[in-house]
Every structure is written in C-alpha cells, then in structure tokens.
C-alpha cells in the first residue's frame, strides 16, 4: 500500500547499476552498507570542506560520488571547494577532466530550525558557472532529477525541500506522472490551465499547485510551470509556455535580489512573451529564516498569497472572473 520514496528508489537503482559510485555522508544507513559495502558507503566526519574536496578528487579519477551534505546550510563550510574547485576543474583543464559529482542538501520548509539551518540558495548557486542546480518541486520530480544527476558528467547540486520527506510527503501535489529521469534545463508543465500562468520552483511548486486548486473552485484555471532546474534556466521554454495575454505570476521563496525569477521576468518582457503590466513577482522576504511560525508566516509566498495575487492582477484573468 505504501509508496516507496522516489529518492530512495533512484539512489538504490544507481548504486546497483554503477559499481564506481560512492556515497559520502556523516551518516550511513546500515541497510545500505550491508547492501553496497562500507567502502562505497563512506562514513565521514563532520568536515564538509575536506569531504567535498575528496569527492572531487574521486570524481576526477574515474568514479562518481554522491555527497549528502545533509542540510545545504552545511555546504557553505565547503564553499571554496564548491565554487573554486568543483565548478571550475573541467573548464580550467580545458575539458581534460569531468566532475561526475552530485551534492544533495535539504533547504527549508516546515522545520523551524532557524537562520543557520534553513536556506533556499538556488538563485545564489545558479550564479556559479559550471554547476547544475536542480530544485525538485515534488517527490517524483526529486526521483527524476536525481536519476539524471546520477548519470550527468558534471557537478549537480540537488536542493531538496524537507517537505518532500515529511511523514505526509505522499499527500503532496504530484505533477509528475512518474519518477522517470527528467532533463536539466527543461521546465515542466505541472498543471494545465488557460487563465493565467504561475511559474514556480521547489517549494513554490507545491504552493502554486495548491493555489491552482483553490482558484479552480472559483472557475479560474491556472497553468503551473515548474522550472525544475535553476541552472540551466529554461528561459525560452517558459516563454513558450506562458498563457498569452494573461497574468504571469513568478513565485519564489528567495528574495528578489539577483534571482532566477527577476531574470525570467526580464526575459519574458523583453522577449515579448508577456506584457510588463501582466508580470508579477511574488518573492520571499530578504531576511534570515526566523524560528517562530508567527514571524515566518507572511515572509514566504504561500498558496493564499498566490491566490490573492492572481485575483488582484490587473491583467484579464478570464471572462468568468
């Protein structure tokens, strides 16, 4: 009856199929060690900087590494290795080496851990040349993006919302019919609709799908586009998917400073896919994550804010509005 988590399925599949794949983590599951061996399921001390450098060294020498950094907050302890080493090695060597390395990290969502444990850094990481930044918006998308990441010749960061692992994960909206491999740099149609477009990434895919359900009860059909990856960013794909002459609401949990959504807004408007007065950006507040739910509410664009924005947008929603 219970559905197996797509992430776990994808990872076991990869370890079974790829004998050259190793896993670095400060915590290793006993069952995975029993199945794949302690030499591949490597127990590491809490030393993200060295751990990531070692993962790079293995990746450069003919192996693939899955590095579970636990919370992406801890990846910042390894930022030199990420930015100066992992992302540059292939380029600096003029393609003599590739870096098949996947970094998984938890972002934020429903855990109330505060500013040093909760980040949604897809925009920041997307600015690092040489990195793929995958941001799954559903459990199947997570499985699908992990599958692609574990075949990819270059470094990939997979940013995973804790909501995708909460006890109720299987009740989340699921726009992907299966957890089959998803291409990088190709936005997905998460929900069809003709009255307006919601463009989302990661957690805001969940919120946008919930908002679309509410709007549907008012007879408004929202199209939801899931970016799936922040880098590469599917600018042209999104431009082709927006409902013409209808509101386009870009929904992001990070602040709008240098964000993928401000980038998209520029592209949609300058490319003629949307009129400036139709485009709206709903973003998170530019403050560190507070622990208190009372403080947090209102800082992030949730389904309610999305519904309100859809109803308030000056562009024609639909004849039935």
């Amino acid at each position: 009856m219970s559905r197996r988590h797509p992430a776990g399925v994808a990872i076991r599949e990869a370890f079974t199929a790829q004998p050259m794949l190793s896993h670095f983590s400060t915590y290793q599951q006993e069952d995975l060690i029993a199945e794949y061996g302690a030499d591949r399921m490597v127990r590491m001390p809490i030393a993200e900087n060295a751990m990531l450098g070692m993962a790079l060294g293995m990746a450069l020498t003919g192996r693939r590494v899955l590095f579970s950094v636990n919370r992406v907050a801890f990846l910042f302890s390894a930022f030199d290795q990420l930015v100066n080493q992992v992302a540059t090695w292939r380029y600096m060597t003029d393609g003599q080496f590739s870096v098949p390395l996947v970094i998984r990290g938890l972002t934020r969502g429903g855990e109330h851990l505060g500013a040093q444990h909760e980040h949604a850094p897809h925009g920041m990481l997307s600015q690092i040349p040489g990195l793929v930044v995958a941001v799954p918006g559903s459990p199947n998308a997570l499985g699908g993006l992990l599958r692609t990441a574990l075949q990819h010749p270059d470094p990939v960061v997979v940013l995973e919302s804790p909501r995708l692992f909460a006890p109720t994960w299987s009740e989340l909206p699921e726009p992907e019919p299966t957890a089959a491999a998803l291409p990088f740099g190709v936005a997905g149609l998460a929900r069809p609709g003709t009255d307006l477009t919601l463009v989302a990434i990661g957690n805001t895919v969940i919120e946008s799908l919930l908002a679309a359900e509410r709007l549907a009860t008012r007879g408004i059909q929202a199209r939801v586009v899931d970016l799936r990856t922040a880098a590469p960013l599917d600018r042209d794909g999104v431009a082709a998917m927006v409902v013409p002459d209808r509101p386009v609401i870009l929904v992001d949990e990070q602040s709008r400073a240098g964000s993928v959504m401000t980038d998209l807004a520029y592209h949609l408007v300058c490319g003629g896919a949307a009129r400036p007065e139709h485009v709206e950006l709903l973003s998170g507040a530019g403050v560190p994550a507070p622990v208190s739910a009372a403080l947090l509410d209102g800082l992030l664009p949730d389904a309610e804010r999305i519904v309100r924005a859809a109803l308030d947008n000056p562009a024609p929603l639909a004849q039935r509005r």
Binding site: M54, G57, M58, L60, T61, Q81
Partner: peptide, 19 residues
C-alpha cells in the same frame, strides 16, 4: 591539476587516493 587556493589540493588528492 593544480589549485591556486592554499591547501585546497590536499582533500582533492585524498579523494584521488580513495579512488
């Protein structure tokens, strides 16, 4: 390879040694 960040080559070499 060679890195211009002091000490960054050490973990990279250790990873190659794990390989």
């Amino acid at each position: 390879g060679s890195t211009s960040i002091v000490a960054a080559q050490l973990p990279i070499a250790a990873g190659a040694a794990m390989s």
